[in-house]
Design a protein around this nucleic acid. Structure first.
Length: 126
RNA sequence: CGAGUAGGUCAGGUGGUCGCCGGCGUCCAAAAGACGCGGGAGGAAAGUCCGAGCUCCGCAGGGCGUGGUGCUGGUUAACGGCCAGUCGGGGUGACCCGAAGGAAAGUGCCACAGAAAGCAAACCGCCAGCGCGCUCGAAAGGGCGCGUCGGUAAGGGUGAAAGGGUGCGGUAAGAGCGCACCGGGGGGCGGGUGACCGUCCUCGUCAAGGUAAACCCCACCUGGAGCAAGACCGUUUCGGGGCGCUGCAAAAGCAGCCCAGGUGCCCACCUGGUCGCCUCGGGUCAGGUCGCUGAAGGUCCGUGGCAACACGGAAAGUAGAUGAAUGACCAUCCCCCACGUUCGGGUGACCGGCGUGGGAGACAGAACUCGGCUUACGACCUGCUCGGAGA
RNA sequence: CGGGGCGUAGCGCAGCCUGGUAGCGCACAUGCUUCGGGAGCAUGUUGUCGGAGGUUCAAAUCCUCUCGCCCCGA
């Protein structure tokens, strides 16, 4: 039932606050000029995406546009994202919002670094 | 052509590819999923400044209080909105702006300055009388200074503001003291539903400041919260009440209560699980479903009305998400700029066409719904006004 | 989405209701004290009162609009 191509239905997204908090607490973190990305294994066979854009980034239509850009990158290049991982993309409040190409380059750059570092180190205990 | 003013319209279009949200249908036992059909942001969706619907709580009725509104008449489900008018102010004008009731119901305040800031008074002045001194004069009398007692509100000075304004007359000096004009008060008549307007008469005792976006008075409106309202269902936990059973106990009362397995039976113990039954209440899982999209709605036509709007009819038709959809890319058309042009018009500057390259398309994203207000913002169209030029 | 609060000196706050002078603490500067520093004492500096408009003679204060920040509600 692996949806081929570039679809992006709900099961590829994070839907619960708890999932976001878990990813941000125990996941690995990498940053680029416009984004912070958290990643952690989710125990399934597909990658999932969650996006956080706070009100500091801009007004509603600016935030909507940013989320659409990030979704578009994920949708177009889902093969580049390692499966079995949850990703949470947090937008930083930069003065100039990025365009699609910039978003794509930054996010895929970060994802390749995750990929190179796999398997992600379990940092539990304490 | 330039400057301005009022009103209106649109909110980039078309095609293709890849996606998203929810609806209906088909396949499928069902779920998941697949396929098909049709739908999917705004004029401000924004700020949340008003008003309603709707929901829960409160409530016999009325009053007080609180808050709001404040020229008049209309309009509406309602409004602080809108329409039409009145008055005042601004602008050469088109036109625009106005929280625009009451200060002779009461209270408060008016800093500094100033004599005095609200019961009217009088600092410097001005003027008359009286007294004293000096002086001029033959005398009558005059001049100057000081004092005193009066008359004044012209002038000076202070202030945001000092008891109508300007002018002439008048006077010892002055003053609505008299007069003219302007302003103001009262009354009559006429017009208007009314705010108010017009006109005539009369008042100089014209009895007197401002502030009500100070308290207040008057008139009218006004219960509180909000769809995260609220309703239903589940999940799990805590507590109260009742019932039943068991044990202890004389009783009051206290404690416990289910199922399965270890283990053939009983007690105890251990492990696991939804831990007697009924009922009430609070919390947990930002649990699920409903509320949730049908318009006091928009368009067109007709009738009434200056208009806001009302009434009647017709056709079309409805975004409903919940870490939250309505998007991305490509091509092309529209707009601007630059360059080129064996193209067209023109004497010419230049204008138009075509081609190439580049750039721009504002403000901004539904979250229960609707009527307004306010704020943000791109382009175009129309009427009108003022100025300039030409015929 | 809905409801509420706050913007005053470099920092934390008062003053606003009841309009005329913006004040307190810390900090800062200068002097005294000390061999020097700290502490102490004395003196002093510092303000678009978030922004725009209005009412008033006069606005941080009253009214309207606007910007920013914070808190609460299942």
């Amino acid at each position: 039932m692996e949806t081929s191509g570039e679809a992006f239905p709900k099961r590829f997204r994070l839907r619960k606050r708890r999932e976001y908090l878990q990813a941000q607490r125990v996941g690995r973190r990498l940053t680029s000029p416009h984004f912070i990305v958290y990643a952690r294994p989710n125990g399934s066979r597909r990658p999932r995406l969650g996006i956080t854009v706070s009100r500091k980034v801009g007004k509603a239509h600016v935030r909507n546009r940013l989320k659409r850009l990030v979704r578009e990158v994920f949708r177009r290049a889902r093969q580049e994202f390692p499966s079995g991982m949850d990703f949470v993309v947090v937008a930083k409040s930069e003065i100039a919002p990025p365009d699609l190409l910039q978003t794509r380059d930054e996010l895929l750059g970060l994802v390749r670094r995750f990929d190179a570092a796999r398997p992600a180190p379990r940092r539990d205990n304490r």
